[in-house]
């Protein structure tokens, strides 16, 4: 018996180690990216890679000063925040309707939303460009904010539907029997109960918009340019500016990583449109 348990002990330790290695493997490219932001130009190219070096802040001074990266951070923040809030404002009533009412074509409409969510940005970006031109909205924050609604609203509806459905309808009905209007019943009873889900949805939408590339790339130029499209700055006639690129990537991914870690409990349901509870 003792031999078995030693074997088991060893194999458990082995599996622990394996787990550790696997997770480290997923984390490593990110950590290496962050560390590269503090390297000099020739160090980023070095082969074999440099593991120990004198960190420099030069790349950060470069992007914060010369490239004015904060301007694009601000654009990204404004666009992602507004689009998220607008999405919730529009999607929550719709979600409530899908979750609480029986009506003809309910599932059909819900799936139509889902279908639109799947349309690749790149395939309609050209058409959206014409739309923007027609209404004189090219390179404006507002147009990007609106354009993202096309994907965000269906996402939010599918995400939140599960959260609403999970809240017993009896609670609302009891309140309505007590003379509460349906709106107030929703506002004071259901909404607080689904706050966690709403927060998770909001953060995930924020992350999606923050990272989005193809629409931002083709629908903005000077005023509304966002962080992901700044990669163009690094492909220059004086070579690829790897250091500033790594610094921008570090800066640009930082808020998102923090947000994601905050909502990690809801992350799985967020990834699956609420189909699976994390």
């Amino acid at each position: 018996m003792k031999r078995v348990s030693i074997g088991k002990f060893v194999s458990t330790r082995f599996l622990d180690l394996l787990t550790l290695l696997v997770v480290a493997g997923f984390l490593f490219p990110y950590l290496f990216m962050v560390s590269s932001a503090f390297k000099s130009r020739l160090e980023t190219f070095a082969y074999p890679p440099v593991w120990f070096f004198r960190p420099t802040l030069q790349n950060f001074t470069n992007i914060l000063g010369d490239m004015n990266i904060m301007f694009y951070m601000r654009n990204s923040t404004v666009i992602a925040l507004s689009s998220t809030l607008l999405t919730l404002l529009i999607a929550i009533p719709a979600t409530y309707s899908f979750a609480r009412f029986q009506f003809p074509y309910r599932e059909g409409i819900a799936y139509a939303f889902l279908g639109l969510q799947m349309v690749p940005g790149i395939s309609i970006v050209f058409a959206l460009f014409f739309v923007a031109q027609t209404f004189n909205l090219y390179d404006t924050h507002i147009f990007l904010i609106l354009a993202y609604l096309l994907w965000n609203i269906p996402y939010a509806i599918w995400m939140l539907r599960g959260f609403v459905a999970a809240i017993p309808v009896d609670l609302e009905e009891a309140a309505m029997v007590d003379g509460c209007t349906r709106f107030n019943a929703f506002r004071y009873i259901t909404l607080p109960l689904m706050a966690g889900g709403v927060a998770a949805t909001a953060i995930l939408i924020f992350i999606g918009v923050w990272n989005e590339f193809s629409l931002a790339f083709f629908l903005t130029s000077l005023d509304a340019r966002t962080m992901p499209t700044t990669i163009g700055f690094f492909m220059t006639h004086s070579g690829i500016k790897w250091g500033p690129m790594f610094a921008t990537a570090t800066l640009g991914t930082f808020p998102v990583v923090v947000f994601a870690l905050i909502v990690r409990r809801h992350f799985v349901s967020a990834l699956t449109f609420g189909a699976i509870k994390g």
Binding site: I207, F213, L271
Partner: peptide
Amino acid sequence: FTAALIIPIVLMPSMVGMVARLY
């Protein structure tokens, strides 16, 4: 560990592409 696994999913893909180009 699960928190660490979230990170690759939420990174900006355009930046990931650039970094991968060098890697």
